[in-house]
């Protein structure tokens, strides 16, 4: 497929991004660059100095709401992307309403408890929707251990073991690999579905 053909398919699709941190901000930017028509992004946090080692924000955005800062950044890259933002903390109740019209959902939370919440909620309430989760992305090196596996509609990107700690922080290169792997999986699903 040519890029024009790819864009013409992707522009008719909507991707939900749950969290606008390291995984979510980088994944959203990649999806916007290749022409996904609509992104629905939810996060309750503000941009903090400690985010800048991996998240797609700028120094002059410290203190801004992540969802609005990310929307502004994406608009500068590709103004054609429609971006819906929700400044709230996702939970098992609001999540279904916010993401029910998406073709695919990208799990981009930080905390394990939140990852559990969205995986369990999607499996029980949105079972037909592909969910792409990021699991095990802290530290540096070990690029080959970041992989993808599929279990029905659940896709897992990461090494599934590297947990964030003070001695093993999440950093731009490895988080970026996983975030872009999530975006790449979105393309694989949307483009292969259309082709097949």
């Amino acid at each position: 497929m040519t890029f024009e053909e790819i864009k013409s398919i992707l522009k008719n699709h909507t991707v939900g991004i749950a969290g606008a941190g390291g995984l979510g901000s980088n994944c959203a930017v990649a999806l916007s660059r290749v022409g996904v028509g609509k992104l629905i992004i939810a996060d309750f946090d503000v941009v903090n100095e400690t985010n800048l080692n991996r998240q797609y924000f700028f120094k002059d955005q410290l203190g801004e709401k992540k969802v609005s800062a990310l929307k502004n950044n994406i608009k500068r890259i590709n103004p054609e992307t429609e971006i819906i933002i929700h400044d709230l903390k996702l939970n098992e109740n609001n999540l279904v309403n916010i993401y029910k019209d998406c073709d695919i959902i990208v799990e981009a939370f930080d905390l394990a408890e939140m990852k559990q919440m969205i995986i369990e909620t999607c499996m029980s309430k949105l079972p037909d929707k592909p969910l792409i989760t990021g699991l095990g992305i802290a530290g540096w090196g070990k690029s080959n251990e970041i992989r993808i596996r599929q279990s029905e509609n659940l896709y897992i990107c990461g090494d599934e073991v590297s947990e964030t700690s003070t001695q093993n922080p999440p950093l731009a290169p490895r988080v970026g690999i996983a975030a872009n792997m999530q975006a790449n999986t979105v393309l694989e699903i949307l483009l292969n579905k259309t082709q097949g």
């Binding site: 969290g19 930080d110 394990a112 990852k115 699991l135 990461g158 073991v161 590297s162 999440p170 988080v175």
Partner: peptide
């Protein structure tokens, strides 16, 4: 099918079953 934590003690795995287990690790 999802098995929630409350059901770990009374859900039984038998010959031929397909089981997936994920560790949920913090980081994103």
């Amino acid at each position: 099918k999802l098995v929630r934590k409350e059901a770990y003690n009374n859900t039984v795995v038998k010959d031929g079953d397909d089981v997936t287990v994920l560790h949920l690790v913090t980081g994103g």
